[in-house]
Nucleic acid binder design. Structure first.
Length: 272
DNA sequence: CGCATTTGACCAGCGC
DNA sequence: GCGCTGGTCAAATGCG
């Protein structure tokens, strides 16, 4: 959209009227009385015109300001559209496993389409916040990596005030994989996940290899722990990385909640 | 009523 | 041996 009329040549906003406008050439100056009257009238008119010019100037500045803000807003709208599009399109190049920035109402563990989403300690501890504002989009990420996790413990560790949650894979009773999830001490918006062990069973909707990048699977920029780093290190080949990216892309593309959440988050940033 | 989560208690490893 | 810390257990609790 464009404020086209602003640039039209037939619309001239400059209403400044110079003193010459009031000059009446060739007028006889003999009649003193009339001259005095004229002088006072001229002064009055000039003063009025000065006021009008002043107001015009102010209005012009105001309009310029509004147009500037409009253009800025338009630019941000474009950027937002690019982001959404990127999520939509670049899903084909995103990382492995399902990760979703979800509305808080999805925080509780649910089984969806055979895959399970496990909530971390932080997620469950924020139930109150969820109840307080169900319409707000949470910054928290619902963990969704294709496996079913069962929480079996929680502990506050020494180096981090945020509690650490312990999960076991409940997809198969014999599976010994464990997962630890803890909010980063430096940035509480970051969830750090650590995986231990290997799944000895198939995955519900993702290939087992996706599980080897737990950090990415959490949908958060993870500061990899030693063990997680070891596991991530096992998928450093470009082919494998590409594969993981494609898998995550598909998952995100098919996740309407993710799209909605991203759009809501963007609009929330724009108007606050 | 069944299942998942919560949470305090317990255990093991490690450093002093 | 003691204390600290991380990890696990299991009874209690909540929810659908």
């Amino acid at each position: 959209m464009e404020v086209a009329w602003l640039n039209r040549p037939d619309v001239d906003l400059d209403l400044t009227i110079g003193s010459s406008v009031l000059h009446i050439p060739g007028r006889p100056s003999a009649m003193k009385q009339d001259d005095d009257d004229d002088d006072s009238r001229v002064k009055t008119l000039r003063a009025e015109l000065d006021r009008a010019s002043e107001e015009n100037k102010r209005l012009k500045e105001l309009l310029a300001d509004v147009v500037g803000k409009y253009e800025a807003l338009r630019g941000r709208m474009s950027d937002a559209a690019v982001v959404v599009t990127a999520v939509d399109d670049d899903c084909s190049s995103a990382a492995a496993a399902a990760a979703s920035v979800s509305p808080a109402t999805n925080l509780k563990t649910k089984t969806v389409g055979g895959a399970a989403a496990s909530a971390s300690d932080e997620l469950t501890s924020c139930k109150r916040a969820r109840e307080e504002s169900k319409t707000k989009i949470s910054k928290l990420c619902v963990v969704k990596d294709g496996y079913q996790w069962r929480k079996y413990g929680q502990k506050v560790t020494r180096d981090n005030p945020c509690p650490r949650a312990y999960f076991r894979c409940s997809f198969a009773p014999s599976c010994s994989v464990k997962r630890k999830v803890q909010r980063s001490a430096e940035d509480t918006s970051i969830l750090v996940a650590t995986y231990e062990g290997e799944h000895n069973h198939g995955q519900s909707h993702l290939s087992p290899v996706a599980n080897k990048v737990p950090a990415i699977a959490e949908g958060v920029p993870v500061k990899s722990s030693k063990k997680a780093a070891e596991q991530v290190g096992s998928v450093t080949s470009p082919e494998l990385r590409r594969s993981l990216v494609e898998q995550m892309a598909v998952t995100l593309t098919n996740n309407p909640t993710f799209k909605t959440a991203v759009a809501a988050a963007i609009s929330g940033r724009m108007f606050h």
